[in-house]
């Protein structure tokens, strides 16, 4: 029986957790940040239940679905979370938030971030990056969205025409490309 097995204090900012990405990079992150990722949190709690030494930096948590470049961005987003997650209550703030969302790059980057946030079960991030993606294709035509995301239209022209006809109301009021 170990009397040194002090419970890692979640509020302590000094506690670190090591995450290992798909390309074998090691990230030492603050516990408060790592706990935003429910998948990590769950892993951590399971380990603790199994009475495996799960104290801070002594454990390395593998994240086989997350690339280091993506994780680095998620962590940096996490660190500025408090202000970016506040509810926008006026137009100006909404614009600021939109600009902030724009910084997260190309659709490809965003898709990687969404995919990772989904895997990590990181709710705020999932919401944020999805919103960023939605901003990009807001009010855009089908052609624009296809080009933007690199989707190849595979309907016969008459088929597509029929489907558009079916929900014609949804195709009104779309911005010019």
């Amino acid at each position: 029986m170990s009397n040194t097995s002090e419970n890692p204090n979640p509020s302590s900012s000094s506690a670190k957790i090591t995450l290992k990405t798909s390309d074998n990079e090691l990230f030492e992150v603050e516990e408060a940040v790592a706990m935003k990722f429910c998948t990590v949190k769950q892993y951590f709690e399971d380990e603790k239940d199994n009475d495996v030494a799960a104290r801070g930096s002594s454990t390395v948590i593998p994240l086989p679905n997350v690339h280091s470049a993506v994780l680095a961005r998620l962590i940096s987003y996490c660190k500025k979370l408090p202000q970016s997650n506040a509810v926008a209550d006026n137009h100006e703030e909404e614009e600021t938030k939109k600009k902030e969302r724009k910084q997260y790059g190309t659709p490809g980057d965003l898709v990687d971030l969404i995919s990772a946030a989904n895997y990590l079960d990181f709710k705020e991030g999932l919401e944020f990056f999805n919103q960023a993606l939605a901003d990009h294709i807001q009010n855009k035509s089908v052609e624009y969205v296809r080009k933007f995301f690199g989707i190849k239209g595979d309907f016969e022209p008459h088929e597509e025409e029929k489907y558009r006809e079916e929900y014609a109301w949804a195709f009104e009021g779309v911005d010019e490309d």
Binding site: P107, G108, V111, I114, S115, N118, L126, E127, N130, Q131, L133, A134, I137, Q138, N139, V142, V145, R146, F149, G150, I151, K152, G153, D154, F155, E160, Y163, R164, Y167, W169, A170, F171, V174
Partner: peptide, 29 residues
């Protein structure tokens, strides 16, 4: 790019779109 996304993830993305935009995704492919 979307080939690597699961339908589950595409659904998550669509769920963040305004409904009208979500309907328009029906003719993407």
């Amino acid at each position: 790019m979307f080939r690597k996304l699961s339908e589950h993830l595409i659904l998550i993305i669509i769920s963040f779109l305004p409904f009208k935009e979500a309907v328009r995704t029906s003719v993407l492919s």
